[in-house]
Design a protein around this nucleic acid. Structure first.
Length: 574
RNA sequence: CGGGGCGUAGCGCAGCCUGGUAGCGCACCGGUUUUGGGAACCGGGAGUCGGAGGUUCAAAUCCUCUCGCCCCGACCA
């Protein structure tokens, strides 16, 4: 590729729309361009990266025995009504109507479509197991598209679906995808970690996420320093807190204390001279329009996903002021469990062992001290409802936990029969009995993987592409194309490398060297060969490694071998 | 959807408060000199000032409405 013939426009200044580094660099490198919020065009260099990631995915998926298909983006509403998700998916589903007023949606994921296909095609156990995948544009009308390719409303996703006769087979399929995903991300040159995850709107029994660790990540990843335990914080289990021995002395009588204007746990604890973990905070939530009171220890945070799963709710939000006042009869900031009737109360395990604790009085500017379960308020339902913190211990091995930010680039689910049952995807087994197919589904965000790679591989000068997904492996850079000797040598090197099957681009623009060096760094090609008067005089070829900044001077007759070797060395190690 | 911010040339911004010729830097086009880490000078093209309505002799500027975009929360590959 000749640079001068390419559509490559780099920009010096950071566009104001970009917050995270991958977004900034992709815009500055002219790899993507925004058309609308969360909707991006890929320009030639950017699209080359996408295609490289896609090819790695295809190769690994095919090797795992999966077959590629291509499903429609436009999906009829009926299928979604059958699965029940037409109403559940909410405004995130891009809906539209055709000229006959029939309803459709733009596929945000394809369980319905693929299950429909399979139920029509598969009749016998002889046709199973099956793993079908596609790489395609998905649509989700996200409330807030963010961070460029990281969270778009239109995005490229690889989605795969497995179909098995029984649980054992489904486990094998799941396991195979788990390994395949690790291969894919490793071959893309990413550092990642696999964690347990919540199943969310897709549903199913259990799932794993593949996380690229990066500060800009939207997820929090909990991992054990000792064993292999890793989990999305949404799912991370909390070990029950150590039991506090009940006091020998009889429980103290409840007392109301004036705490004017103090609503925050910190303030109340300070004011009453107690520790934060000696108080119970009371959250009034709405779970699908049903009010529920949640009790947490003062120093803990609610994990909304756990609450959602406990209540089997679709949507959880904080109740508004009016609702809180109706339920508690008091003002916001002074809620407590005492005297609450006719409302569901759930509490985190950590408050189970508290006694003589502090809580709101459901009365303005008032808190209660020495509250005790049973005596002063009903004993609520206890459950694991809180967010893990770094002071918690690993639920598997009791060692220390760390919490880091991560970008979810892949997610695999064991679905079970959620969709096959709803859509009646069945087969006949050996005995001729009708059985429901067991499913799994497996997603990879292709654009997000590209963004995550940049988050992980960049420096102050720009992108540093891992070799396997770089738009070009080598950039040949003549410092001055008006010098015939330099120009001819550069073109010769360029042709030689192409002849070796190396993906090469030559910066044949009539620009000053500084401009070309800056662009080379920004665009992030792994290897750069500089042809200038300096190296010509010395009779050497100069190879620069983007990642390390190392400059190699190699003999003219050996440079091809060196380039080939360097390309190999820069491949991810097995 | 709630909270905050921003819409002026392809990009980054000034001008708005106090109404009166639409500006700067980068990028782009032509020219001269330059050429190993974002060159200098000369000349040039490019703008419905997000949109609609209003106030006014006069609106980028004041008022009302509206649309878009970005950031913080709920969603997720």
């Amino acid at each position: 590729m000749r640079y001068s013939a390419g559509l490559i426009n780099t920009v010096r200044e950071v566009p104001s729309e970009a917050e995270v580094i991958s977004h900034q660099l992709m815009l500055r490198a002219g790899m993507i361009k925004k058309l609308a919020a969360g909707v991006y065009s890929f320009l030639p260099l950017g699209y080359r990266v996408i295609r490289k990631i896609e090819e790695i995915i295809r190769k690994e998926m095919d090797q795992a025995g999966a077959q590629e298909v291509f499903l429609p983006v436009l999906c009829p509403a009926e299928l979604w009504q059958d699965s029940g998700r037409w109403s559940v998916y909410g405004p995130e589903l891009m809906r539209c109507k055709d000229r006959h007023n029939r309803e459709f949606c733009l596929g945000p994921t394809h369980e319905e479509v693929i299950t429909d296909l399979v139920r029509r095609e598969v009749k016998s156990y002889r046709q199973l197991p099956l793993n079908l995948y596609q790489i395609q544009t998905k649509f989700r009308d996200e409330i807030r598209p963010r961070f460029g390719l990281m969270r778009g409303r239109e995005f490229i996703m690889k989605d795969a679906y497995s179909f098995d006769c029984d649980e054992a087979g489904a486990d094998v399929s799941y396991q195979r995808m788990k390994e395949t995903y690790q291969n894919i991300f490793r071959k893309c040159g990413l550092k990642f970690t696999m964690v347990e995850a919540d199943t969310g709107a897709i549903g199913g029994n259990f799932s794993h996420e593949f996380m690229v660790l990066a500060d800009s990540g939207e997820d929090l990843v909990v991992s054990c320093q000792k064993c292999s335990y890793g989990s999305n914080i949404e799912r991370a289990e909390c070990l029950p807190s150590k039991e506090k021995a009940l006091p020998d002395a009889p429980l103290k009588p409840v007392e109301a204390v004036l705490t004017p204007k103090y609503t925050a746990v910190d303030e109340v604890a300070d004011f009453l001279k107690v520790k934060k973990d000696e108080g119970v905070k009371t959250l009034i939530m709405k779970a699908d329009e049903q009010e529920v009171v949640v009790l947490m220890r003062g120093d803990h945070e609610l994990n909304e996903v756990k609450l959602k799963n406990l209540l089997n709710a679709v949507d959880i939000v904080m109740a508004d002021e009016a609702t809180i006042e109706t339920i508690t009869g008091g003002s916001v900031g002074f809620s407590g469990p005492v005297g609450l009737e006719r409302v569901k109360i759930v509490a985190d395990y950590s408050v189970q062992n508290l006694f003589n604790f502090v809580t709101g009085a459901n009365k303005k500017d008032t808190h209660l001290v020495n509250v005790n379960w049973g005596r002063d308020c009903p004993v609520p339902q206890f459950a694991d409802l809180r967010l893990v913190t770094e002071t918690d211990r690993c639920p598997r091995c009791q060692d220390k936990l760390t919490i880091t930010r991560g970008i979810e680039v892949g997610h695999i689910f064991k679905l079970g029969t959620k969709y096959s049952k709803a859509l009646k995807a069945e087969y006949l087994d050996q005995k001729g009995d009708e059985k429901t197919i067991i499913m799994g589904c497996y997603g990879i965000g292709v654009g997000r993987t590209m963004a995550a790679s940049i988050e992980q591989n960049h420096d102050k000068d720009g992108i540093i592409w891992p070799m396997p997904i770089a738009p070009y492996q080598v950039l040949v850079l003549p410092t001055d194309v008006t010098d015939k000797n330099i120009k001819d040598t550069a073109h010769d090197v360029y042709k030689q490398l192409l002849a070796c099957g190396i993906e090469t681009i030559i910066d044949d623009r009539d620009e000053r060297p500084g401009v070309k060096f800056k662009d080379a760094d920004l665009l992030g090609f792994p290897l750069r060969i500089t042809i200038g008067s300096r190296s010509l005089k010395q009779g050497v070829i100069e190879i620069r490694i983007r990642k390390t900044g190392e400059n190699l001077q190699v003999p003219k007759d050996d440079y091809k071998n060196r380039v080939i070797k360097l390309i190999q060395e820069l491949q991810p190690q097995e």
